[in-house]
């Protein structure tokens, strides 16, 4: 039975690994885009401009209440329609194609951003008031306070929350299987159907996910330790 999991042309072991690599790529791409977008959302939430705050608030409310699966399907089918509509509206025939991978990254990072902006906002506000006052007292400008006091500590306060969100997203990448992206879960399903042994392959996929989350968790713990070096707790 286990030769099915071997590497090479006769086994599916290498295909599973390739699928797992695609899963990691999907998650990393969504992480970077999601962080960027989350930062913008956090800035909107902290902004003094009320409409900006409302917009960001409405966005997070939407993402938090709608299933990830539905969001991915909406992005997947919606972006192409939207692009085509905008193209027609501007008067040119579009044959622009949104690749499946990009659609999945867009969807996953849109979800990540909604949760991540709360973490960033919380981390920004977690800097003790005394430090800000101390900054003002030594004559720093607002920008200097932002740059020298708030930002350097942002990462430290945000890391535990972001670590959790990363784990959530890593697991959410499995939804891409339903969009026919050849990530780990889809490869396992296809292999299971082809060899008529779905249990073996789905269990193997589960184990690989467990390894990925365990490694992520370990890395997060180490990073937290490093960042908190010299900090009184």
């Amino acid at each position: 039975m286990f030769e099915l999991l071997s590497f090479g042309d006769s086994g599916w072991g290498d295909d599973l690994i390739i699928g797992a690599l695609l899963t990691i790529r999907l998650a990393l791409a969504s992480l970077s885009l999601g962080l960027l977008f989350g930062l913008v959302l956090a800035m909107m939430k902290l902004s003094r401009l009320a409409p900006a705050r409302w917009l960001a608030e409405a966005y997070t409310l939407f993402i938090r209440g709608v299933p990830e699966f539905l969001i991915l399907l909406m992005v997947f089918f919606g972006t192409e329609k939207a692009v085509a509509t905008v193209g027609q509206w501007l008067g040119f025939e579009t044959t622009f194609e949104v690749p499946k991978f990009a659609a999945a990254v867009a969807g996953l990072s849109a979800i990540f951003a909604a949760y991540c902006c709360e973490v960033i906002r919380g981390a920004y506000l977690a800097v003790p008031k005394g430090q800000i006052e101390a900054g003002l007292a030594v004559g720093m400008s607002r920008w200097q306070i932002f740059q020298r006091i708030r930002v350097p500590q942002l990462w430290r306060f945000a890391l535990p929350g972001l670590g959790n969100l990363w784990l959530v997203m890593l697991k959410d990448t499995s939804l891409a299987a339903v969009l026919a992206i050849d990530e780990l879960l889809r490869v396992a399903k296809v292999a299971g159907e082809a060899t008529r042994n779905p249990l073996l392959f789905l269990l193997a996929a589960g184990l690989l996910y467990l390894i990925m989350t365990a490694v992520s968790d370990h890395l997060r713990a180490r990073m937290e330790k490093r960042l908190n070096r010299g900090m009184a707790r």
Binding site: F77, E80, K81, V83, A84, E93, T95, E97, V98, L179
Partner: peptide, 15 residues
């Protein structure tokens, strides 16, 4: 190759 669920949307989108 295109999965069935998305095959018509893919055509209208110009894939």
């Amino acid at each position: 190759a295109q999965d069935w669920d998305g095959i018509i949307p893919g055509l209208t989108a110009g894939k």
